[in-house]
Amino acid sequence: MEILIDTILLVLLMITGFSIVRMRSLLAATMLTSIYSLLSASLFVVLDAVDVALTEAAIGAGISTILLLATIALTTDREKPPQRTPMLPLIVVIITGMALIYGTLDMPHFGNPQAPVHLHVAPAYLHDTPGEIGIPNVVTSVLASYRGYDTLGELAVIFTAGAGVLTLLGYRTRGGNSMDPGIRKLLILRVIGKLFFPLILLFALYVQFHGDYGPGGGFQAGVIFATGFILYALAFGLGNAQRLIPHQLLRIMVAFGMLLYIGVGIESMLLGGKFLEYNVLADDPVSGQHLGIILIELGVGITVASVMLMIYYVFRSRQPEGDL
């Protein structure tokens, strides 16, 4: 049954992809990109990747759509018709596609349990997690414990990207605490924004700390946190959001999350283990792992949330005054 839904979703994704490329209005393309993201997120649910689905929904349909919109607001909505003939790119694309399809002929079939991917490392993770780490969500245990180095690297990439955006665009403080006339009209939005803002933050905390037991973890929670503050900024104006979480605080938080992560690693070295070996953090290895994973996830969450929110601030603060 699931294969049927999988098939239909893939076809819908393909159609959406084609029409995104054909759209000449960039805003329309952005809206379709958001739908595309939601569709791929539901595909991930069908394919059992619940953690990935959570991330993709929060990032693809949420923040990346918002960033695209902010960029369009700063640049232009119209795409000029291409002057070059699209023949050459089309030929390149078709030849590459053919080569890749030829390559898939040797691949193990979809869902085959004997595929090489499933034979090495992964069975060990699935088998050892309950005993060694003691948490049900294997994705979290692999992310935070078995492959903690990788995650540190990913976090460093996010940190660097945040720093890069800040360097490229710079940051301008918004004077005043006034709400622009556009917001004044949206009374209902403000009431609902006030109602939902704490709920989203609460939910982000749940995702953060429930990540050991269900889908969730630092990456997802960080993005949801940032989305909550973005909702606040949308409903009450950027100036008010920046009074709530000042930009300087965000800069500190970005570094703090990274330092927390590295600090846990160094602490485990000081206690006689290897870098990021959580077993030594407590008397009993399993509770050491628990403590280590919670701290690491917290570090990830703090950095991701503050980088996302900082990127949003930076993009939006470039908008001309009064246009916000």
Binding site: V52, I59, L143, F219
Partner: peptide
């Protein structure tokens, strides 16, 4: 679970 972990972080990095 392994590809899930790789992609989960890759999504966040792709946004960055």
């Amino acid at each position: 679970p392994l590809p899930h972990v790789l992609i989960l972080t890759a999504i966040v990095v792709s946004l960055a």
